[in-house]
């Protein structure tokens, strides 16, 4: 049963990722008082790219070539292991929070390498910045997860979801504050911050996309959408597990699936609204924001330690 859920999660996430991306584009257009494309435009884009001839650039080699599958594959694998539809991990060996964190490092690693590989400064700067976003978010992310792990008594996301879902994760205030911090960290991790050009797609952080074309670009674009969805799902799974199946009966899982869809949609919509409501800031100020998030995470740690 759980293996089916895992596969289902992975497939569904991949399938829904362009849709979510399309919805956010639509919202952005609306907020900019444009008509915008319709929400399925991303599927068409991907399909078009899929049929294009691929151009390999400059000195790029095997690393560049391997990056899109690694990128997409890693996030698909993470998606399969998260407790999304149920309040337990469908595949326990994928559900450990440390495993997830380090599994997320692999695509980042390859992404940055590929950006260097293409020998262009534009792409490379993007790759390095992407890495740095990871570095800066890491303390906050880990602190929150630490708080959750201690509160739930386990580093397994399934147990954490169950503990939050049954309100067993104590102390409560700490968990709530941690949730806030985690939401902010996820938001940054999604690459949605006001540090990128709001118009069109993100340019600086995701510079390496410039070096790709054809099916590889399609896969990468899909991968980026999946990544955003996975990060949002992580938030949903850990802090908003309400509605997810407590037992493994098909009906409960189905209900959990629907609930998940609703929750993640809300999260993504909220994210895109925030994204378009704030002004754009220089990249160099990123540190201030991440340290602020770390501060909130620290607050949750303090609450955890003093037990409220």
């Amino acid at each position: 049963m759980s293996v089916i859920v895992a596969i289902l999660q992975a497939v569904l996430l991949v399938a829904a990722a362009p849709l979510v991306s399309g919805i956010t584009r639509k919202i952005r257009a609306k907020m900019h008082s444009r008509t915008g494309t319709d929400i399925f435009q991303d599927y068409r884009d991907l399909a078009k790219l899929w049929r294009r001839c691929e151009v390999r650039e400059g000195g790029s080699g095997l690393v560049s070539r391997a990056m899109p599958p690694v990128f997409l594959g890693s996030f698909v694998l993470i998606a399969a292991g998260l407790p999304l539809f149920m309040q337990a991990c469908p595949v326990p060996i994928l559900g450990d929070i440390i495993t997830i964190l380090y599994l997320m490092a692999l695509p980042r690693f390859m992404f940055a390498l590929a950006s260097i590989d293409s020998a262009g400064s534009y792409t490379a700067i993007g790759g390095v910045r992407e890495l740095l976003v990871g570095v800066l978010v890491e303390p906050a992310l880990v602190l929150v997860l630490f708080v959750m792990a201690v509160a739930a008594g386990s580093t397994n996301t399934g147990f954490m979801a169950a503990a939050t879902g049954s309100l067993q994760a104590q102390p409560l205030v700490a968990v709530v504050v941690a949730g806030v911090a985690f939401a902010m960290a996820c938001y940054i991790e999604m690459g949605k911050l006001p540090f990128d050009l709001a118009e069109a797609e993100q340019e600086i952080q995701e510079g390496p996309l410039a070096a790709y074309s054809g099916p590889s670009l399609a896969m990468l674009k899909l991968g980026v959408s999946v990544k955003q969805l996975v990060v949002a799902s992580l938030l949903v799974a850990l802090f908003l597990p309400f509605g997810a199946a407590v037992d493994a009966s098909p009906a409960a899982v189905l209900a959990g699936m629907l609930a998940y869809g609703a929750k993640v949609l809300v999260v993504m919509v909220a994210a895109s609204i925030i994204e378009n409501a704030v002004m754009r800031v220089r990249y160099k100020l990123l540190g201030r924001y991440t340290w602020f998030v770390t501060g909130i995470a620290l607050l949750s740690l303090v609450f955890l330690v003093i037990g409220i």
């Binding site: 899929w50 151009v55 390999r56 400059g58 899109p68 594959g73 262009g120 054809g214 099916p215």
Partner: peptide, 25 residues
């Protein structure tokens, strides 16, 4: 998973063709 992704991508490449551009953009 990664191999599956790679296979899919490569088959698409085979269908659509590939070429090298020696110049970095």
């Amino acid at each position: 998973v990664i191999a599956a992704c790679a296979l899919v991508r490569n088959s698409a490449n085979r269908a659509a063709g590939m070429k090298d551009d020696p110049q970095t953009w």
